[in-house]
Simulated assay, not measured.
Amino acid sequence: MKLVWSPETAAKAFTDTVKSCELFEGSSAAELISAMAAGWNAKLIVETWSHGVTTTSIGLSVASIHTSGRHVCIAPDEDSKSTYTAAMEKAGLSPEVIVGEPEEAIKGMIIDFLVVDCLKSNSGRIIKAAKFGHRGAVVVCMNAAADLQWRSLFDDGSRRIVRSVFLPVGKGLDIAHVGAGEFGSGSDKIKKSRWIRRFDKQSGEEFVIRK
């Protein structure tokens, strides 16, 4: 399986995010990220957060509604969680909030859509610790410079980058599509397929099976 794009769902999430963000200062980045998460039908959306409510969080929650998925925000402490929760409730949204270090909090999660802040020193470690599903995943780095080295974040050979792009939206977005397959965190191995030939003695036909 792999991620399949739905333009209809993306458009609905984009529009709803625009409406939801009217309470706050508008952000083109929020609408774009929301549309991507919804369009790729992300079932588990994870973001890291440290201060002030962001329109991006609103967009991710809107996207999760359209995909019938789960939106998880990882906050560094209880005070941040309270501030975040109160602000999101003001927008009529209530995502799941986990308190702790992101690298630890994401253990056991199979993530479809991950959003991190490149201004934080642990952003690279979070990406390396993340585990993605068989459909592949999308990773978004906010506040990104144009020279983010994606390959260095996937140098263990267990995952591959299909494509990446830098967009001068907001304060900079660097987006990567992680390929579908048997990919996991560092210790996991890639499961390689192989072709097996079989002959039917009665009919003389040859069958080729991928295993």
Rank of each mutant, 00 (worst) to 15 (best):
K81D: 04
S64A: 12
S61P: 02
L60P: 04
V116M: 05
G133Y: 01
H71R: 14
G133V: 04
V116Q: 09
S57F: 00
H134K: 12
T85A: 12
I65Y: 03
G69A: 09
A130N: 10
H66T: 13
G124Q: 11
G136L: 04
G136F: 03
S80L: 10
S94R: 15
G92S: 07
L93M: 07
I106G: 02
D112K: 02
V72I: 10
K128G: 11
S123E: 14
S123T: 14
T67M: 02
H66P: 07
K90R: 15
M142Y: 07
S61W: 02
P95V: 06
T55H: 00
R135D: 15
I74V: 03
I127R: 08
R125F: 11
D117G: 00
D79N: 14
C73R: 14
K81S: 11
W49Y: 12
A145N: 13
V140W: 07
I106S: 06
S57G: 06
L119E: 15
I65G: 12
T54V: 00
E104S: 10
K107D: 12
S61F: 01
H66A: 11
V53A: 08
A137W: 04
K131I: 07
R70G: 08
R125D: 15
V99I: 05
I127V: 10
I98G: 11
M109F: 02
M142T: 14
A87W: 06
T83F: 07
G52L: 09
E103A: 10
I65L: 10
A63S: 04
F113T: 09
V139R: 12
K107H: 09
S50V: 10
A75P: 02
K81L: 13
G136V: 00
I58M: 01
G69W: 01
V115D: 09
C141R: 14
A145C: 11
R125M: 14
G69L: 09
T67K: 01
D112R: 02
H134T: 13
T67V: 10
D77A: 09
M142W: 08
P76W: 08
G52D: 12
G133N: 10
K120M: 12
L114I: 01
V115N: 06
M142I: 12
H66F: 04
G52T: 11
S57E: 05
A87F: 05
